[in-house]
Computed example of a mutant assay.
Amino acid sequence: MDLSYDSKAKSNPRRLIGFAAVVVLHIFIFYALVSGLARSALQIVKKPLEAKIVQEILPPPPPPPPPPPPKQIKQPEAPKVEAPPPPYVPPPEVTPPPTAAPAITEVSPAPPPVEYKIAPPPPVMAPPPGPAKADIGVACPTQVKPEIPRKALQEGVSGVVRAEALISNGVVKEVTVLSGPRVYHQAVRAAMMQYKCVSGGGDIKAQQEFEFKID
């Protein structure tokens, strides 16, 4: 249910005290404005403010260091005078007493001279006789002409090949190429191994040259 303002004020005395304080404050402000108290307060506020600079008091500087002591000048020392060495006195010569030479009682005869015999050098063995040299045309009348390799034709290689054949009992046993372009070596060996030679009593060696020309 609703309560009136007087009943609320009576029931809450704190609110009544606060309301009274507000009324008194308004009355005081109104009185101050009328009496000029507010103007004097504004003038006090408007007075210029004076600012003073307070200088910082610095400590006095430290005293200067004392001057260094003067350097002592050393007096030059007098040169030392060395005493001269005593004069050299040679020692007296002492002569040894004479000694008698030993007597030779017996002389041994000198030994006879020794004869050294130098052995003769061993005889030089003669090397065993090798195969006899022969003309290839006489030793091998039937010959085969070597073929020109395809590689030599492609590269256009010309030259002279010198080879040596070892012939035993009419048959070519071995062919050694001595000089010439390498591309022809196999062809020369294959041709000389097909030679028909004359049989003899021992082994013979015969050399032959082959000239290859490629136009």
Score class of each variant (00 low, 15 high):
P92T: 04
P96L: 04
P97L: 10
A101D: 13
P102D: 08
A103S: 13
A103N: 08
V107K: 06
S108E: 09
P109S: 08
P109L: 05
A110D: 14
P111C: 12
P112V: 13
P113V: 07
E115F: 09
Y116N: 12
K117C: 08
A119V: 12
P122C: 06
P123W: 02
V124H: 01
A126F: 01
D135W: 01
I136Q: 00
A139S: 12
A139P: 06
P141D: 01
T142L: 11
T142S: 15
Q143A: 00
Q143C: 01
K145R: 10
E147Q: 15
I148E: 11
P149M: 10
P149R: 10
P149S: 14
A152W: 09
Q154S: 15
E155T: 11
E155H: 09
G156F: 09
G159P: 03
A165W: 01
L166Y: 08
I167F: 05
N169A: 14
K173P: 11
T176F: 08
S179R: 06
P181V: 05
R182D: 06
V183Q: 07
A187N: 10
R189W: 01
A190L: 10
A191K: 01
M192V: 06
Y195F: 15
C197T: 00
C197P: 03
S199R: 09
G200C: 04
G201D: 14
G201V: 11
G202Q: 11
G202E: 12
A206P: 01
Q207Y: 04
Q207T: 08
F210I: 03
E211Y: 07
F212Y: 14
I214V: 14
